[in-house]
Amino acid sequence: MSKYDVFELVTHVRKCPDLFFKSSSFLAKEGLNSIALLCDTYRTVSGNFLNTIFKIPSGDHLKAIGENHWRAIHISTWLLSHQDFKNASFAEEKLYDFWFEELRHASPYVKFNEWVSDDERAEEMVRLLLNCCQILPNGENPEEAADKLSSLNSAERHNVLKKSYKANERIMDIKRQMEEKRAREAANTYGRE
């Protein structure tokens, strides 16, 4: 298949082994060594297996990362093991932003296993990575890629639902106030008669 084919990458994510679902060693005694996983991914993507310097947050920041976010990062390292990302050194500098910004924003709205079990969430992860690395998916123009990512984006969808909920609450509050006013007016009219 062509490089950076969304369907192929989604299929790869969906085959993620259960091992990547484990907690981080920062959170569980028997967890995955997340730092080793990140370093190995940096090496695979850069093609430089002798590299020992990687862009990774400091110890306190690493400990502050929640379990769901860590597991999303672990699953994303599986995605990055796909052949399209091997020796893709141009993407190496973008990985930090993908792991510690993009996935941080999405993680509160997506349970880690949904990145693998749900087609739309798997596609969201793929598109977040491609967008962050400034890679245009095979067969798509920039507008199509942006539109598809926007339609899948969990954080944006949550914000839209939140705004919709607040608007609905305002409408219900106005209706309640109008009904109370009508009831008061009716009571006043009845009291005068």
Rank of each mutant, 00 (worst) to 15 (best):
F7R: 03
F7D: 08
L9V: 06
T11R: 14
T11K: 14
H12I: 08
K15C: 11
P17M: 12
L19S: 13
L19F: 15
K22L: 05
S23W: 00
S24D: 03
F26E: 03
A28M: 10
K29Q: 07
G31Y: 09
I35K: 06
L37F: 13
L38W: 03
C39Q: 07
C39S: 01
D40C: 11
Y42P: 02
R43A: 05
R43M: 04
R43N: 04
G47Y: 14
G47T: 03
F49H: 13
L50E: 08
N51R: 14
N51S: 10
T52P: 04
I56K: 04
S58K: 03
G59L: 12
L62P: 01
A64N: 12
E67W: 00
N68D: 10
H69P: 10
W70A: 00
W70M: 04
I73K: 00
F85S: 10
F85R: 07
F90K: 14
Y96S: 08
F100V: 00
E102V: 00
R104C: 00
A106K: 06
Y109H: 12
V110R: 00
K111W: 06
S117G: 07
D118N: 06
D119F: 12
E120R: 09
E120A: 09
R121L: 05
M125H: 05
M125C: 11
M125L: 15
V126M: 09
V126P: 08
Q134G: 08
I135N: 11
L136H: 09
P137E: 07
P137W: 02
G139R: 11
E140I: 03
E140N: 10
A145N: 12
S150W: 14
S151Q: 15
L152A: 02
L152G: 02
S154H: 00
S154E: 00
A155M: 06
K163R: 12
K163P: 01
K163H: 04
S164W: 09
K166H: 07
A167R: 03
A167C: 05
I171H: 08
I171C: 02
M172C: 12
I174L: 07
K175Y: 02
R176W: 10
M178V: 08
M178H: 07
R182L: 10
R184Y: 12
R184G: 06
E185M: 11
E185T: 08
A187V: 13
Y190D: 12
E193T: 10
